[in-house]
Design a protein around this nucleic acid. Structure first.
Lengths: 111, 111
DNA sequence: CAACATACCTCGCCTGTCAAGGTATATCTT
DNA sequence: AAGATATACCTTGACAGGCGAGGTATGTTG
């Protein structure tokens, strides 16, 4: 079991939304940027990535459109919606709260 | 969906092991101490709790024995093993790494 | 022309969570 | 005496997310 798999479970949506805040992007590139940000220590598995896109689009957090590349493989671009921005903001707040809570719960010392 | 459920998923084992580092304890009390530490904002669901005990015992991280209460409901106590302490230590390190990684991944700003 | 990189996708399994149900003992209230 | 509440344990079955393994198609590089 890799370090990250279970611990990052549940953050997939937040991670993807974060990558779309500044600009539209497509799946493959999003995953590359995730690898870069973690210096190669983490990447979303493709199945996880595309499952998350479907889920987020279903939830109205992102919309998608095909790029108009004249060459190379086709790309499906994703755009974050207002709902998505709002969701992202909530997820960020949740993460900050969860982080503190987890730290409290895995401490050994008595309070 | 509660704030914590999905985000804390994967930390259950760490949380339980942390509660057993200093002394043996039983399920009901462990869960109470979790509620206290989070000021009532979080608790493990019973099914999750007991599933985790089975999993941890199976993995050799804890052992269990029945308390000798003369009155009241019976209690099954859990004791952390050397394997458990070692696992806990690893999980703590993993958490610190994961925390940093997640922070990096859900940032909006470019680096 | 084979291998690799880019770029997308689906199916089916596995694992952890949890709602819902159960058992049993003791105390407190009416 | 009956009922509610707290303590304390447990199991079953459904559900959701992650992901291994497989697939398609295009373009580049050795």
């Amino acid at each position: 079991m890799s370090i990250a798999s279970d611990l990052i479970r549940g953050h997939t949506d937040t991670i993807i939304l974060a990558r779309l805040i500044d600009s539209d992007n497509y799946g493959y590139e999003i995953n590359k940027s995730i690898q870069q940000r973690t210096d190669g220590r983490y990447e979303l598995k493709e199945a996880t990535l595309y499952t998350a896109f479907r889920r987020l689009e279903q939830a109205g957090c992102i919309s998608s459109y095909w790029g108009d590349e004249q060459t190379g493989a086709r790309r499906r671009y994703y755009k974050i919606t207002d709902t998505g921005r709002s969701t992202y903001s909530t997820l960020l707040t949740d993460w900050k709260a969860a982080k503190e809570m987890i730290d409290k719960l895995i401490e050994t010392e008595d309070r």
